[in-house]
């Protein structure tokens, strides 16, 4: 009955089942101090140097969509995982798993796009691997990227640093990537300002940290969206978070498309969004810095951290009510009517 004997799509959705899989299998078997922190990047000490190390795989369908493609997000995703630890990304590896019959031209486009994204992020792709599998054994192309970066000594970003009263900031409109991909994948035909937000955020984060090194925690908002990330952080920090619906940046097109499809934008994936926790007294300074960068123009303070008996994420709704924001349960499915 429990449906737990097999891997479900929801195990990869970034929601509660992903969380359980990581905790109950990977952490249990691989357990070590670094992994158990479950940060976006692992921090390893090599002599006196703090090295951030991360890996991520990309399987998005379709491989090209408005605002980007799998190549761009494969580079940006790994760069961002390093950057949110406060690391300066140095080098990236790339592994391709290609399906027999995949168009060479399409591969060239993906690779060019990776080159462009790496250039923008200021990292080099220094090593790689290629495997080809029989037709039908993979879907066109899967990409894995790993990356390393250096963390400066004065920087220390972690969920454990989050404390009561801290302000919660996001760098711009949420849910753009997920809705764009869903629209492209299913030929839904939504036109208008719908495009992926895939972007390397190391420049933005460097700008923030060089003026405000005391930022407490930064998270990359990818699968599972803002709602899931906040829940993970509430869980890790043992503190509650109260966010204001009216302050959450969301483009009107994405809001409308989500409403039509029955999706909650809080759980929709992003590829160029971060959430930051800063001391209340620094919120204005951080916000100003962010808004002066092209990937933070629409940054907003969306809420604050509170102490409660049971850590949870709550949202003050537009009409002034309040509701709990849970961890995403399974995949979000479009509704019938």
């Amino acid at each position: 009955m429990k449906n737990k004997e097999k891997i479900l799509l929801a195990h990869g959705s970034g929601g509660r089942l992903t969380h359980e899989l990581v905790k109950n299998l990977f952490i249990k078997k691989f357990s070590n101090k670094i992994l158990n922190k479950l940060d976006d990047s692992a921090e390893i000490k090599i002599k006196n140097c703090r090295v951030a190390f991360t890996t991520d795989s990309y399987v998005v369908d379709p491989i090209e969509f408005p605002g980007g493609d799998m190549g761009r997000i494969a580079v940006c995703g790994t760069v961002n995982d390093l950057a949110v630890k406060g690391a300066r990304p140095l080098a990236i590896s790339v592994g391709f798993i290609l399906e027999e019959g995949f168009e060479m031209k399409a591969l060239e486009r993906i690779v060019s796009s990776m080159k462009k994204a790496a250039k923008e992020a200021g990292v080099e792709i220094v090593t790689g691997d290629t495997k080809v599998v029989e037709k039908g054994k993979a879907d066109k192309i899967f990409i894995n990227t790993s990356g390393i970066g250096i963390i400066e000594n004065k920087i220390s970003l972690s969920a454990s640093k989050i404390s009561i009263g801290d302000s919660i900031i996001v760098n711009g409109n949420i849910a753009d990537h997920g809705v764009t991909v869903m629209n492209a994948r299913n030929n839904l035909g939504f036109k208008g300002a719908i495009k992926s937000d895939g972007a390397p955020l190391n420049g933005l984060i460097k700008k923030i940290l060089s003026s405000c090194p005391r930022v407490k925690c930064i998270r990359d908002l990818t699968r599972g969206g803002l709602g899931t990330s906040l829940n993970e952080l509430a869980d890790a920090s043992k503190l509650s978070m109260l966010i204001n619906q009216k302050d959450i940046p969301l483009s009107p097109s994405i809001e409308s498309a989500s409403a039509l499809l029955g999706l909650d934008p809080l759980y929709v994936a992003n590829e160029g969004k971060i959430v930051l926790f800063v001391k209340k007294s620094e919120e204005k300074k951080v916000l100003k810095l962010m808004r002066s960068h092209k990937y933070g123009r629409n940054a907003k303070i969306i809420g604050s951290v509170l102490k409660e008996k049971k850590p949870q994420v709550r949202m003050r709704t537009l009409m002034g009510g309040e509701r709990v924001v849970m961890m995403l349960e399974g995949d979000q499915l479009p509704r019938i009517c």
């Binding site: 035909g189 939504f190 036109k191």
Partner: peptide
């Protein structure tokens, strides 16, 4: 093809002042 209007949900439909009244 569905052309999404700039905003189909009016902010008034969940306005907190209207709601509190």
């Amino acid at each position: 093809m569905i052309k999404i209007k700039n905003k189909f949900s009016s902010p008034l439909w969940s306005d907190s002042l209207m709601a509190s009244n």
